[in-house]
Write a protein that binds this DNA or RNA. Structure first.
Lengths: 230, 230
DNA sequence: ACCTGAACACCGTTCAAGT
DNA sequence: ACCTGAACACCGTTCAAGT
């Protein structure tokens, strides 16, 4: 894509002729991650696609970790505005907050694991994202402590769900046949209930649909919060 | 720890004088991961602590990924036996299954992320671990489809919880002051509910206790399953 | 079969030098 | 301040050679 090109001469470029910017670097990095995954996003590779010396990047971002932190920022920049909505029940508002959060993380699946496993990124993101959850549960009439715990639980669930969704989906779109095989091969008395239930479900029943799995979880959640705390 | 030592002469060792075994390699690898984290566990470092040429390892394990897969195996080897227990309610049995699963993954915190983000490892582990969940929900009288979804949801939650527990705990034992700071610095009208709730909770209220957070989540869960599906 | 040594094709990052 | 080039201290893995 980027013609090998004659090497640019050294020295500071004239004003307005800067070849790089933090933003341009991050956009290029996001493209690499989206197209080829996190492992492909190396500093040298990034520099190559920008047609630039690897070391040039370090004038705009201190190191590779900062590049990934910047990517997380980029992804969540859009999400910020979520209007309060009193037209729906608190239950629906809570579910909707979870759906929005899931979608945001899902929009760049290759980045999800990176985001979820980086402490500072997660806490940034959470602070920005979490208001709608708090609002819904406040409307439900929960006490502060209960709101706090309920939100943590729900967010943790979404994280775990995304972990499965992004890594499993990447590897095997169908996990049903694999699962049936595995269970079939287990020593019969080791997991009798698992064996019976999966067999009753059959091949089609195991064709896991992430969307309906997510919705089903949300329902369990909301009902659980309702009967536990209201 | 391992004296630099004279290099061992080349050539196949006599029977019974093998210097390496799959098991010895994996135990050494686990030690490195536990003590210094996954990044420290390189093939060259592993060979060095074993007092062996880096390439020797490849005669016992095909590559680095296989080493990590082996580690996951090692960690879950103990877990296998979980006796059926009819002395407690299905609710308690389900909670207990979740606690056991969490503990297993928590026993090697540095390995948790590795396990959770590796597809093949996760599915291995899940198949081995999942029976108690199925048993409890079967006793509760759920239909196969509902059992399937409930287990997926609960497992996903545990994964997300562990992600937070292992990565957050590693970085900051106290997230309360940090969180209060962040929230305080937000534009006031951006997250009013979050601001109010965290303020009401106060510094102590935010001192998150992972154990009680986990328990609280389990209660919400069980109640949710109960009112949704029984 | 099991171990070694040299080599290949990579990494992230530091540092001195250009303008 | 911004870009470059050489260099350092690493990686995982292949391959040929020893016994």
């Amino acid at each position: 894509m980027n013609s090998a090109g004659k090497p640019h001469r050294s020295g500071r470029p004239r004003t307005g002729e800067e070849r790089l910017s933090r933003d341009a670097i991050l956009r290029a990095a996001l493209r690499i991650v989206d197209d080829e995954g996190v492992e492909a996003m190396t500093m040298r590779r990034l520099a190559a696609t920008l047609g630039v010396n690897p070391m040039s990047i370090y004038h705009h971002l201190p190191n590779k970790a900062a590049v990934f932190a910047g990517l997380a920022e980029l992804v969540f920049a859009d999400l910020e505005a979520t209007a309060a909505r009193d037209d729906v029940s608190w239950q629906d508002e809570l579910k909707d907050a979870a759906r929005t959060y899931r979608d945001a993380l899902r929009s760049h699946p290759n980045l999800a694991l990176q985001i979820l496993s980086d402490t500072s990124t997660v806490s940034d993101v959470v602070v920005v994202t979490v208001e709608p959850f708090y609002r819904a549960l406040d409307r439900a009439g929960l006490a502060p402590r209960q709101i706090f715990e309920a939100v943590n639980t729900l967010i943790d669930f979404v994280h775990g769900f995304l972990l499965g969704e992004t890594t499993v989906r990447a590897a095997t779109f169908e996990l049903a046949p694999d699962l049936l095989d595995r269970v079939g091969k287990l020593p019969p008395e080791k997991a009798p209930t698992l064996a019976r239930v999966t067999q009753e479900l059959g091949h089609d029943g195991l064709a896991y649909d992430f969307d309906s799995g997510f919705e089903s979880a949300l329902t369990v959640f909301v009902n659980g919060i309702e009967t536990t705390w209201t």
